[in-house]
Design a protein around this nucleic acid. Structure first.
Lengths: 133, 133
DNA sequence: TCCCGATGGTTACCATCCGTAAGTGGCCAC
DNA sequence: GTGGCCACTTACGGATGGTAACCATCGGGA
């Protein structure tokens, strides 16, 4: 009832069902955190390895210092990255993915690939739709 | 430089790199739409097949009518779902995934699986972090 | 006749989030 | 003593999300 796609195993079936149901509320809390404007991008960028604040700021187009700070704090709180402060002048702060953070890379990639593949179609559909109105 | 994980192919390498770079801005527009509070949940629910407005409203825990309407409108605009109005009384409106919409299911599942797997760890990390402060 | 309920929304209003721009603090080079 | 580097932090305005109430249509029942 949940899935009709033959490629998906019973395990997937369970998991899709868990997206819904009342257990879904807790899950949604997690997904809301991960799926926000910048989190996936920061995680994907940190897949390179340890990076400093300004490195991240330069490599992620369009993020502000404020949003980078907030995103990094949330990721640290959730145990997806580590934050190491070196008591130097000028200050040096290094960010790196934890094991949990690294495990997020494949799903993030899969979503990014989807977006890249379908971006032209979506843009076209959006164009066509706004034309109609 | 982008990825160190051996499991990822050169194609993945390209794709990860495209998350960053200035092409990333257009991509981010797409991801922001998909990765918002409700979109993935609605798409996952519609994987069952054609559903009516109230079916969706009942099956998705916590969504309001307003947010459901807005989410469905966005999905329709982006060509991920179709909206069919039957001129009956009481009115009947049916929503179904398009081919593009269906193609989003595997990535969405993969992210949901990740969230389900790591939810306890993340909750624990969050607890521990708030304890410290 | 009058009211009710079902369906699929819309509107008003408020809280939270996001983005921009500017400021902070310590030290060092000029 | 002025400005720059680094990693933030603060102030403020606009966009986005959430809640609750309202709306329009029609058939059915009292």
């Amino acid at each position: 009832m949940c899935l009709t796609d033959k490629e998906l195993s019973p395990v997937d079936y369970e998991h899709t069902c868990m997206i819904r149901g009342d257990g879904g509320r807790a899950l949604r809390r997690i997904l809301d955190q991960i799926c926000n404007k910048w989190t996936l991008l920061v995680v994907a960028t940190l897949d390179q390895g340890t990076l400093r604040f300004t490195d991240l700021h330069h490599q992620i187009p369009g993020i502000s210092q404020r949003m980078l700070t907030l995103t990094l704090r949330n990721l640290e709180r959730d145990g997806l990255i580590t934050r190491t402060v070196h008591a130097e002048v000028p200050p040096r702060v290094e960010y790196a993915l934890t094991a949990t953070g690294k495990s997020l890379i494949p799903p993030a990639l899969s979503l990014a690939k989807w977006a890249i593949t379908h971006a032209p179609g979506i843009e076209a559909a959006r164009e066509a739709h706004t034309q109609k109105n």
